[in-house]
Design a binder for these strands. Structure first.
Lengths: 157, 157
DNA sequence: ATAGCTGCAAAGGTTTTGCATCGCG
DNA sequence: CGCGATGCAAAACCTTTGCAGCTAT
C-alpha cells in the first residue's frame, strides 16, 4: 500500500464512514471531481459538469453522494441567500468565509484569524460550544463598484 | 399629527416605500404582527400565527407583504441551513448575529462590536464595499451541552 | 371608476424518495 | 448470490405567479 496524501487520507476517512457501504465507480468519480472543485458548488451545476465527462452518472447519485460526503465530514453543506444547496470541501480547505457581491453574485473566499478570536470571545459569553461558523459579507466587489460608479445600472442578468 | 415612535417612523418609511401602494387592513395587521415578533420567523409559521387571529388573511398576502417589507428595508430576509426563508426586523434591531444550536435548533442573537471592526479590516483588503454581513456560529447551547454530557443521544425530534 | 390588493389555485424549481434493475464483494 | 447502489420517474416542498373578484382612493 502506497503512502497517502492528505486528500487520500480523507478519502479513506470517507470509506470508513461508509461502514458497510460499497465502493463504486460513480462514487469514486464523484469524490475525485468534488475534490478538484475549488469553490462551492451547487448540485445541479456539479451534476452537469460530471455528466459532461461521465454521461452514465445520474443526478440522484450525485445528490446522494454529496450528502454522503457531508455526513462523512468531507463536505460541508452551505447555503447563501438564493435557496440553492451548495457543497464545499470541509478539509484541506481549513476554513474560510465569504464576500458575496450583490451585483455580480460572485463570492470571494477569505480567511482572517481575527474571526476565530472573536468567535471565542462571543461563545464564552454565552457558554456556547462552537462547532463551526459562517461569516458572509454582502456588498459590492471591486469590479462592480467601478461599473456602478460609471452608471447606476444594476445588471443582474 | 402625533409624535412618532421609532416603530411608527419605520412604519411610515414603509408607507413611503410603498409609493403608490395602498394601505389595507391585511397589510396593517401583518406589519403590526411582524413588528411584535422578536426573533426570525418563517413564512409559514408567521402565516399560521396570523391566521389564528385573523382567519381572513391569506398566505399569499403574508408572503407578498413580507417581501414588500424587505424591499422597503424594514425586514431582512435570512436563511439558515434548512432551506426555509425567514424574516426579521432590520431596524430597531440594529444588527446582530446568531448562535445556532445544532441540537435543539434554537438560535440566540448576539451583538459584538468587534465584528464591524473585523469586517472593516477584511473588506479593505479586498477593496470590497460592504452592505451587510451575516455571522452564524453553529454549535451547542449551554442547555444542550449539559444534556449531551449526560447521554450522547441526539434528539433531533 | 380605477388601479392596486387578495387569495385560491396552479406553476416553478429544488430537493427527496420509491422502486426495479444493476453491480460490487 | 445477496445486499447495497443506481437512476428514472414521481413525490414532496417551498416559493412564486396568474387571474378573477374585491377594495381603497
Amino acid at each position: 500500500m502506497k503512502r497517502l496524501t492528505a486528500k487520500e487520507q480523507q478519502l479513506y476517512q470517507y470509506h470508513l464512514a461508509q461502514q458497510q457501504l460499497k465502493h463504486t465507480r460513480q462514487r469514486q468519480l464523484i469524490l475525485d471531481e468534488f475534490l478538484k472543485k475549488e469553490g462551492h458548488i451547487g448540485i445541479e451545476e456539479f451534476y452537469q459538469d460530471l455528466k459532461r465527462k461521465y454521461p452514465f452518472i445520474g443526478y440522484t447519485t450525485v445528490y446522494r453522494t454529496l450528502k454522503l460526503l457531508a455526513a462523512a465530514g468531507l463536505a460541508r453543506e452551505i447555503s447563501f441567500q438564493d435557496g440553492l444547496t451548495r457543497f464545499e470541501h470541509s478539509f484541506a480547505h481549513p476554513h474560510h468565509d465569504h464576500l458575496i457581491c450583490l451585483s455580480c453574485g460572485k463570492s470571494i473566499e477569505f480567511c482572517h484569524p481575527g474571526i476565530e478570536l472573536l468567535q471565542d470571545k462571543i461563545v464564552k459569553q454565552y457558554r456556547f460550544l462552537p462547532e463551526q461558523h459562517k461569516l458572509e459579507i454582502y456588498g459590492y466587489c471591486k469590479k462592480c463598484q467601478m461599473s456602478k460608479s460609471k452608471c447606476q445600472m444594476k445588471s443582474k442578468t
